[in-house]
Design a protein around this nucleic acid. Structure first.
Length: 641
RNA sequence: GCCGAGUUAGUUAAACGGUAUAACGGCGCACUCGUAAUGCGCAGUUCGGAGUUCGAUUCUCCGACUCGGCACCA
């Protein structure tokens, strides 16, 4: 007589119930119909799984994460089944659920391209219409191996071998198709309501670039056609925010193959925004005791051999140039130069923390396939600083930097971000400087400081810099990809390698610790992020043009020009648009160009010394004296609106 | 770098292997206009190279770049 605890906390008797599905049926027939999976004691399982006395059971429908998960997981199996029907002999990799969808990695006997997706999708719809039940079966390792040996599928065999001893090995069968899978799944293929295949791409087997490349097919699945349609529309809207599109329309930046891949040209509008951001951050940092410097983008290779960059990072560096008696490299990072500034004179504990900052331009040889607009480039300028501290100062300075980051994000209106503590992968001996003691110490310190700050953060193994762990501040791009905007890194390695010292209170030499930090990050990525966040409608304080002044007709051209002069004298970035076009045309143009304020000057305004002010995105205009408008802009800028 | 798909005017797009187009933008002319597109006119080496063909924007090959992923990463 199983007594089952339901999500609302009530405990009920389900005399006949053997499975989660029985529980759903006993609660209500309509729930049984909608049921896709179940959560039993917090674990997502098939509806057909047995329940026992004392279990906590929640029936999952398409409205629940668990239900959607099971549905998309089954959709992945349907995809694999469809591919096997159309491309017999295809070998299967993995087919997991991802955010908003699923994919399956396959190795077909003939290439599958985007043109084939419609066919595969049609076959999937057939399988859904067949409403094939999914049957779970636990198998022995031997049986599983025999199954895939017979099919000649090396990938599944490898997956079987990777399952730890003692873990159950399960097969799910739907119709003629059986897949190695831990589940859970919906009860039958007909429960998958709306599917669509989105794209096809190459993906290395097990994420390893030394291993074969499989064909990955991405798809999405939703509980209804309408939900699918809404999702596809959201995808389209996301594309409209893409900084590559917006940046092109607003003429913020461009690329030219004659200049080079991944080397952006900042056009006047983008350059203006960048300069505003640069002035903002330099002023702010100087007010906090940072000292801004300039150092060259080239350096002797030796500098990067001392730092260890050449050993650990040379694949991302442009190759050395041997000239005269020097061998030079383009710098991929600014740190070594700042180490040399530290070393340029003896330092005392009284000098610390010493904050050396620079808008440092650097060049990294990024893989060609990684380049994406301004998000990933080969030439970039970083809002960089290196803070030299005593070991005792680490936590206080780290905290101060995190607070600076939060302040800057507030000023830019960025509120959707999260912290990632990036740690080394101790297994990866090639990437990371070897010194267990230092790593453990550094990682422990960061973790403690974050806890003391009371910040939520996720830990990510293998994301650290080669010389130390770091705190990354993560945001999402318009297309939904995670990206690092800011970073704070703890470094015990460079001070050693450069033999940095300071004289302590005791008169002895001590080793400082370096904190690397980028707050605004690279100007390229930051501006790209702002463009995507605002869809190009930048706040007044950042807009390259804050106001455009439109004379109603030529008769008011002089009056409008006078207004522009007053605005400019008042510090407003204003422009006259007296083109031989209709007023409506020029208003539309100003809206399309996302200019915050459009000012119309006609007879009424010319006589009274006013302007008719229309805000971006609004249709009503408000008349005010020119001086009042200047004041309004000043308020906007002061409030960083 | 790897897998796949693309590349036509400043931009977005069209053109069975048979005269290269349209819209927007730009420029010129007319209109002198009151809050999201006034009318008319003007301007083009189909990414580069090679090949197939009587003839290539279209087919084939090579290269460059862009896009979607993977790997890498601020």
């Amino acid at each position: 007589m199983p007594k089952i605890e339901l999500p609302d906390g009530q405990v009920r008797d389900f005399p006949e119930a053997e499975t989660a599905y029985d529980v759903a049926r006993a609660i209500s027939p309509s729930l049984a119909k909608k049921a896709l999976a179940a959560e039993v004691n917090g674990k997502i399982v098939d509806l057909a799984r047995p329940v026992k006395d004392g279990d906590r059971v929640k029936i999952a429908t398409a409205d629940d994460e668990a239900g959607l998960y099971a549905m998309r997981h089954t959709a992945a199996h349907i995809l694999a089944q469809a591919i096997l029907r159309l491309y017999p002999g295809t070998k299967l990799g993995v087919g997991p659920v991802i955010e908003d969808g699923f994919y399956y990695d396959v190795d077909p006997p003939e290439p599958i391209t985007a043109d084939d997706l419609a066919r595969i999708e049609a076959e999937m719809k057939k399988i859904i219409a067949e409403d094939l039940p999914l049957v779970r079966r636990e198998v022995t390792r031997d049986e599983a191996r025999r199954h895939y040996a017979a099919l000649g599928d090396p990938y599944k065999l490898e997956l079987i071998d990777a399952i730890p001893d003692g873990d159950p090995i399960t097969f799910y069968t739907q119709g003629e198709f059986t897949d190695l899978c831990r589940g859970p799944h919906v009860p039958s293929t007909g429960k998958v309501k709306a599917v669509k295949l989105l794209s096809v791409a190459g993906a290395y087997w097990r994420g390893d670039s030394r291993r074969p490349m499989l064909t990955r097919i991405y798809g999405t699945a939703w509980p209804s056609e309408q939900a699918l349609k809404d999702y596809l529309q959201a995808l389209e809207e996301a594309k409209a925010r893409d900084h590559r599109k917006v940046g092109k329309e607003l003429k913020f930046f461009t690329f030219a193959k004659e200049v080079g891949q991944g080397l952006p040209l900042w056009l006047p509008g983008g350059a203006k925004v960048r300069r505003i951001i640069e002035r903002y951050i330099v002023d702010l940092e100087e007010s906090l005791g940072y000292e801004h410097v300039y150092t060259p983008v080239l350096a002797n290779l030796e500098l990067y051999q001392i730092s260890g960059h050449y050993a650990h990072y040379h694949e991302n560096m442009y190759p050395p140039m041997a000239l005269d008696h020097e061998t030079l490299v383009l710098r991929p990072m600014n740190c070594p130069h700042h180490m040399m500034i530290y070393k340029s004179e003896p330092r005392s504990y009284r000098d610390l923390p010493l904050k050396i900052a620079e808008l440092g331009t650097m060049f990294r040889y990024e893989a060609s396939g990684a380049l994406t607009g301004l998000h990933r480039v080969r030439g970039m300028t970083l809002n960089d600083a290196h803070i030299f501290v005593t070991p005792e100062q680490i936590e206080a300075v780290f905290t101060e930097v995190v607070e600076l980051i939060r302040r800057v994000y507030r000023d830019f209106g960025i509120d959707d971000y999260w912290f990632r503590l990036s740690l080394r992968d101790p297994e990866d001996t090639e990437k990371y400087v070897q010194n267990d003691e230092i790593w453990n110490k550094a990682e422990g310190m960061l973790r403690n400081a974050l806890r003391a700050l009371g910040l939520d953060f996720v830990e990510a193994k293998g994301e650290a810099a080669f010389y130390g762990p770091k705190l990354d501040v993560q945001v999402k791009t318009a297309l939904g990809k995670d990206e690092t905007l800011s970073t704070v890194q703890l470094d015990f390695v460079l001070p050693e390698r450069f033999d940095l010292t300071y004289v302590g209170e005791d008169g002895e030499h001590h080793r400082p610790v370096v904190i690397h930090r980028g707050v605004v990050g690279t100007m390229e990525r930051f501006v790209a992020f702002l463009l995507e966040k605002t869809k190009g409608a930048l706040p007044v304080w950042l807009s390259p043009e804050q106001a455009v002044v439109l004379p109603v007709s030529d008769r008011f051209r002089d009056a409008a020009a006078r207004v522009v002069r007053v605005l400019k004298a008042g510090g407003v970035r204003a422009r006259l648009d007296a083109r031989n076009e209709s007023l409506n045309y020029r208003i539309r143009d100003a809206q399309v160009k996302k200019i915050p304020y459009t000012l119309v000057v006609g007879e009424r305004e010319a006589e009274s010394g006013t302007v008719a002010v229309r805000r971006r995105g609004e249709t009503k205009a408000e008349a005010m004296p020119v001086e009042a408008f200047v004041e309004r802009i000043r308020e906007d800028v002061a409030a960083r609106r």
